[in-house]
């Protein structure tokens, strides 16, 4: 049962991601992206990471995607139209390259046989928290600086725009 859900969900995640490649309208793309992200959240849950599943829903689907949609709407208001999908001139080599890269990764990743297949053990929020605020404490502090830097950058760039 577990496996079926897993593979089904991964299929959804992959197909939704693939859809971004071909849809025309950015809003559609954003929605497919959300679907893919949510499917991924479910995969995280199935892989024993409930905290990350929740964060994925909240942070990605909830926060970042809203930004995307916001921007799409602002830009669409101005342009008022979207073009029909036309693949760019040199798409064949690019597509072949991507395909080739995937095959390559697949071959490399499956070289070593996966030895043990046990039950899923949930690594819960507590374990993650212990790791975050134990050995990785400094990294968390550093991330705070990172977010602050991003904030400063965005504030500056957006302030400019108003002038």
């Amino acid at each position: 049962m577990h496996e079926i859900i897993f593979y089904l969900t991964s299929a959804i995640a992959v197909i939704a991601a693939g859809a971004i490649l071909i849809v025309r309208h950015p809003v559609h793309a954003a929605i497919y992206l959300i679907v893919s992200l949510l499917a991924l959240a479910l995969l995280f849950f199935l892989l024993g990471a409930p905290l990350l599943a929740a964060l994925q829903v909240m942070l990605y689907a909830g926060a970042i995607m809203v930004l995307f949609l916001f921007l799409i709407m602002m830009m669409n208001l101005r342009t008022g139209q979207n073009r029909p999908l036309s693949l760019p001139a040199g798409w064949v080599p690019a597509a072949l390259l991507a395909l080739f890269l995937w095959l390559e990764l697949l071959l490399l990743l499956t070289r070593s046989p996966s030895e043990k297949v046990g039950d899923v053990t949930t690594i819960g929020p507590k374990a993650v928290g212990n790791a975050l605020f134990g050995p990785y404490l400094l990294v968390v502090e550093a991330v705070a600086v990172l977010l602050l830097a991003a904030l400063v950058a965005v504030l500056y760039l957006s302030r400019r725009r108003q002038k």
Binding site: E104, L105, L108
Partner: peptide, 14 residues
């Protein structure tokens, strides 16, 4: 594209 091509070549070595 060049970056991915480079990556593909490097991985191809393995």
């Amino acid at each position: 594209l060049m970056i991915s091509a480079g990556a593909t070549f490097l991985l191809g070595y393995w």
